[in-house]
């Protein structure tokens, strides 16, 4: 599989689901998808994953080794599920930055967290993962959950994350991946391409966005490819753990 979206194409094109589009247009096309689904994002996540996305995120928190006082960047943090938990754990001496390229998602996340009374240690930043607006060596932990596959240039984004991590810091990438067993793969394909867009149509009134979701998952690098991409960006001691049969994988790497 390609090491990034662009290497299998010419220099100016990339994937948008199964479509090939101009690289400079992808960010705005992805933005349109998430502007469209932002309001129903949490409901759809629960429906599509039967609630298991909460367990995947909980696993990520456990694997992050987060401690009170840590500074955490929740990249592509969307509606703030990871941020909420991190905020509790790092306490008043720590800090969480919830960053997302999409203003609609960021607004939904900010409203949700404020409604839950989580205000003391959270900041909100609208940022592109490829050009993180932070100084070098800033964060103890960076997480990106279900966001990397939407990034136009993943290698560039990984290098950007590496730059802003402190030495000793770690990156956790939670993302859809390739199921380990062929039977599961086929069942998953059927579910993704036949049921998921219909669910999107019914609940979020937007079947096309969920068609993109299914396609973007298939176009995302598999477990080993993503691990190699992390190594190429400079990360060390990289590992990954398949969750729910490889439907999702959690990649982890350190900066030393």
């Amino acid at each position: 599989m390609a090491s990034n979206d662009q290497s299998s194409q010419n220099d100016n094109t990339t994937h948008f689901g199964y479509k090939t589009v101009e690289a400079e247009n992808k960010a705005s096309m992805v933005a349109d998808v998430f502007h469209s689904v932002a309001a129903q994002y949490d409901v759809m996540n629960d429906l599509m994953s039967f609630g298991i996305h909460r367990l995947w995120k909980r696993f990520t928190i456990d694997a992050s080794g987060v401690r009170p006082g840590n500074k955490v960047l929740d990249l592509a943090g969307g509606t703030g599920d990871l941020t909420a938990k991190f905020s509790q754990i790092v306490g008043k001496d720590g800090q969480i930055i919830l960053a997302d390229i999409n203003s609609s998602m960021l607004n939904v996340g900010r409203d949700k967290l404020r409604d839950r009374g989580l205000v003391q240690n959270i900041e909100y930043v609208q940022a592109n993962a490829e050009f993180l607006p932070f100084e070098d060596n800033t964060f103890d932990i960076i997480t990106i959950a279900f966001g990397l596959r939407n990034v136009t240039d993943k290698d560039k984004a990984l290098r950007s994350m590496y730059r802003v991590l402190k030495p000793g810091g770690r990156l956790l990438v939670l993302e859809f991946s390739k199921p380990e067993h062929e039977i599961l793969n086929k069942a998953y394909d059927f579910y993704s391409f036949n049921i998921l867009p219909k669910m999107g149509e019914l609940v979020a009134k937007d079947g096309e966005s969920y068609q993109y979701l299914a396609e973007s998952i298939r176009m995302h690098p598999d477990q080993d490819t993503l691990e190699n991409m992390m190594k190429s960006a400079g990360f060390e001691q990289t590992t990954y753990k398949n969750l729910t049969g490889g439907i999702v994988a959690l990649h982890k790497g350190y900066k030393f």
Partner: peptide
Amino acid sequence: WLLPTQMLGG
């Protein structure tokens, strides 16, 4: 697959 440890924690 259902992450029983995380389920228990939750």
